[in-house]
Amino acid sequence: MDPSRIAAALLAWSVGVASTFAADVLDPFALSEVAPGNFVHYGSLEERAPGNMGDQANIGFIVGEKCVAVIDTGGSAAVGRALRAAIRRTTDRPVCWIILTHVHPDHFFGTAAFREDRAVVIGHENLPRSMGQRARPYLNALKRDLGDHAAGSEVIPPTQLVRDETVLDLGGRTIRIKAWPVAHTDNDVTVFDERTGTLWLGDLLFVSHTPVVDGKITGFLEVLDTLSRVSVQRFVPGHGKTDAPWPQALEPERDYLALIVRETRAAIKRRKTIEEATDEVGLSERDKWVNFDDFHRRNVTTAYTELEWE
């Protein structure tokens, strides 16, 4: 498959022209330097709405002596522009790479804001196909939720693909991009900054925000198990923030997913239908998570369709 052809095709799906609304809502665009040279903007835990312009995901960048690598670009061109402005206030190094952690629109719709940087967009080898399949419905939904604030947002797929691991030299600083098996989605990557031991997890880690399973729930648990054995000094979740130490910070999410697996298996064993299972599985977790009613039943649906074949 020819990425440039895909890119050309996808450009057709862009949502009109750039707007100037961004500055008001996203100013000030807060950045936290979680480790030297690692800057995070924590997104909102609220649902996507014109008032937040699609600023849901935790996004940010790593600064080397030669180059900046952006990790996710936010849920709209407006968020992407705010991130780009924040980078320009922080460093004069050019943005050489944009790493997209996975296919969800709160993480990638800001990429258009970096067009003039001519940065190389990097993602999991499964990402172009998944983005191509979802481009139109994602843009329709963005427009439905943000209205005029969706302007300028585009689906821009990666041109450099990660199959196993890709190592980038930002100048005196090495980062490792690792592609994972099917878990949160079928195209999750993590980014590890070797100098500070900082791991950017994308949506392999949800904190406070209800975890979302759009891949394979048993695969998600296996990946968390592998991650819990990795030595990490600092970490950045895809949503939410925490003071919990590593790897204990993974536990609430792991417990939630494991409970769904356990209770869904039990429901299937008792000959419950998919509707009955979504009505009863995992409800004891409701008070522990934000946006539970928006995502939990969907997770049970995904789990059921996976586990009914065991």
């Binding site: 196909r129 998944s130 399949q133 979802r134 419905p137 891949g215 000959r271």
Partner: peptide
């Protein structure tokens, strides 16, 4: 509900030898 026609397919790459496997599942024992 929206986006569901295009969403699947990517998370369900099943081995070719499994395609067409069937099960009957009964509501009562």
């Amino acid at each position: 509900a929206a986006g569901g026609c295009s969403a699947p397919g990517d998370k369900n790459r099943m081995p070719a030898n499994l395609v067409g496997t069937m099960k009957f599942r009964f509501a009562d024992e």
